[in-house]
Simulated assay, not measured.
Amino acid sequence: MQTEPSFSRPKSQPLAEETLTKALKRIANAVFITDKAGHIVWVNDAFSRLSGYTEAEVIGSSPTILNSGKQSHMFYSDLWHTILLGKTWRGIVVDRRKDGMLYTADEIITPLVDDEGNITHFIAIQHDITPRSQEHERESFLAYHDVLTGLSNREYFLSKQQQAMYQASRNHQMVGLLFLDLDRFKLINDTLGHTVGDALLVAVAERLRSAVRKDDVVARFGGDEFAILVSEIHDIQVVLTLARKLLEVLSHQFVLGGHTIHTYASIGIAIYPNGSDDPEALLAQADQAMYQAKKDGGNRFQLYAPVASEMH
């Protein structure tokens, strides 16, 4: 009876330190090793390509040379606490290259120990995920912003409006909502073309952005409709003063594509808690007031006032 042939597996040879070093030197991911005190003692070629620093420039330095300021002190405190306990740390970091550009990396830091189990070094491996991070940021931006003007879109505006109204209710404050529509925009668009019309919308967005406070939210709802959210106020005059300012900045001519354009705006204003406590309904009230301003000739603002039927 024939038996199965037996094969003996050759004994594996331990990996020579020189071979290991060469392998780390050539791998695609950036690798750097520090001593226990955090001084860089070794880097591979990929680290130099990613960071822009040569080996000679970083040996003896701290990894803080890569610090972008995007991570908090607590972030690094937790990182060091983990690795000093002998545990592996993993996280996403935003670091700064030698040329000042930022890059995003998926980083793993592993403690290296001697025969007695004492930590002697730390080895950090960085996988560059900058393209993926940038694409994610772009998708997030497009989800909440108007593509043409870069302003917030309706969805983002309503979420911020709801937050502002909630805070106002708790802190006994007011929220102002301004709904703005350009006068004569359809005529300009039809006469000069959509390219000039789009350029006008971008220019209007810039003027609106420059006229409001830092924390106010400016959004484009589509077409030539814009909305401004003014939160944390105690006096309605703040909103009325802003409305006058917006009319004034938009009254100055625009020079676009060789054309001198004059346009104005009609603005409707609704105030919480004077109006509805529902974000969509408050927005509708501001819209209604805007149409009244346009009906009265445009280039003016109108404060929403409930009709008699709404007061019962």
Rank of each mutant, 00 (worst) to 15 (best):
I188C: 03
R90F: 00
R300I: 00
A56Q: 15
A293D: 10
K36L: 08
S61R: 11
I236W: 01
I267G: 02
L178W: 15
V147C: 07
F221G: 07
A105I: 00
L192K: 04
L112V: 01
L142R: 14
P63Y: 00
R170T: 02
T88F: 06
K36C: 06
R26C: 08
H81T: 10
T241W: 15
S133N: 12
T110R: 11
L148I: 13
I188P: 11
G275C: 06
H234D: 14
L24C: 02
P111K: 13
R9D: 05
F301L: 10
K22F: 05
I271A: 06
L102I: 09
A199L: 09
D278N: 11
H121K: 12
Y291T: 02
A308R: 13
S68H: 04
E135S: 08
N29L: 01
L242Y: 14
F254I: 02
E4A: 10
A37V: 06
K186C: 05
A16P: 08
G38Q: 13
K295R: 15
Q163D: 14
K98S: 03
K22V: 00
T34E: 05
R213P: 13
L240E: 14
A293N: 12
R49W: 13
T263S: 10
V196H: 07
Q2A: 11
H252M: 04
V212L: 14
I125Y: 07
A211D: 04
F157S: 08
G52V: 01
D277S: 10
D114N: 13
M165G: 02
A219P: 01
P306D: 05
I267Q: 09
K160H: 15
T120P: 04
K245Q: 15
S251W: 14
R154M: 14
A243P: 01
A293T: 01
I40V: 03
A219K: 09
H136W: 13
